[in-house]
Amino acid sequence: MAAGSRAEILGKLRAAVPRHAASLAPQGTGFRVAPAADAAEISVRFAERLAAARGTLERVGPLAGVPGAVARYLADQSLPARLNVAPELRPLLDFSDGALAIDEALPIADGRAVLAGCIAGVAETGTLVVVSGPEHDPRLNYLAETLIVLVGAGQLVEAYEDVWKRLGVPGNGIAPRLVSFITGPSRTADIEQTIEWGAHGPRRVHVLISDETPT
């Protein structure tokens, strides 16, 4: 490219920037225009968006109700009463009644479901946010056909920006090595535009919302 042509093109680009910059700049301190929603509204919106993504949901009250809710869900779906429980949830839940066979082995097979935790449920899309770490094995979120996720009511947030704030990013916090966003069951339409469920992850995503936050 000749020097004159290059200078002409750059000059046109520089002239165009001031004309559009004002319309692109965020208003105030962020991009969110609507006022922040309260906890009840966030919970309702999360349930609606999760359902739109083909996920299902049950509210279980205290954590003590989680094992029974898991057993009922598996029975309703005609699935085996076998469960792999994420390490961070094992000390918090009591499965001693024997209604479910608890198995910690990997890989997950034979129709076994997984009960996992998360760090947040995002109301604007019905998305579950999970992270890696010493007590958070990311493989559990993808290896089973049936993924059951325990979400504390205090873990529901309005938008993705709230997730990063909880993680301390940006700021002085150190982001986890892996942050995954799960919106409903896995699906693909790559072959003949026909939707296939469970293509790259769980075929079913069921959420249990507890009044208590699992910590």
Rank of each mutant, 00 (worst) to 15 (best):
G117Q: 03
R204P: 00
F181G: 01
G198T: 11
I191G: 03
L140G: 03
V131L: 03
L100R: 08
G126Q: 01
A144V: 10
R204T: 15
A189M: 07
L143T: 06
G168K: 02
E145Q: 14
D162L: 07
R204L: 12
N141V: 01
A153G: 14
G126P: 01
D110Q: 13
T125M: 06
P107F: 04
E145G: 12
P107R: 02
Y160E: 13
A120Q: 06
E135Q: 14
V122P: 01
D137A: 11
L128F: 02
A153R: 15
V130E: 00
V131D: 00
A99S: 15
W197F: 15
G111R: 05
T146N: 13
A123Y: 10
V114G: 00
I108K: 02
R112C: 08
G133A: 02
I174E: 14
D190M: 08
D162T: 11
I195Q: 06
A109K: 14
E124L: 09
V114S: 02
G184F: 03
T127M: 04
Y160A: 13
I119V: 13
L178C: 07
R187H: 13
T146E: 12
E192C: 09
E192L: 02
P170W: 11
G171A: 11
G154Y: 09
A159C: 13
E196T: 15
T127E: 01
R166T: 07
Q155I: 10
I182E: 08
S186M: 11
T146C: 14
D103R: 11
V179C: 08
D162A: 13
V114F: 02
L106W: 07
V163N: 04
G168Y: 04
I182H: 10
L156I: 06
E104I: 08
P202F: 11
G117H: 06
N141S: 10
L150C: 09
T125Y: 06
L167C: 05
P185M: 03
I148P: 12
V151G: 11
T183C: 12
H200K: 02
V179E: 01
P176R: 01
E158D: 14
G173K: 02
G201H: 05
A99V: 09
G173E: 04
H200D: 09
G184W: 05
W197E: 07
A109P: 06
I102Q: 05
V122M: 06
G154H: 10
P107I: 06
R166Q: 15
P107M: 05
R204S: 13
A99T: 14
T125R: 06
G173V: 07
V169K: 05
K165E: 15
Q155R: 10
D137S: 07
P107T: 08
A199D: 03
A101T: 15
P176Y: 07
V131Q: 01
E104W: 00
L156C: 03
T194P: 00
R139G: 05
G168Q: 01
L100C: 11
H136A: 11
G198P: 12
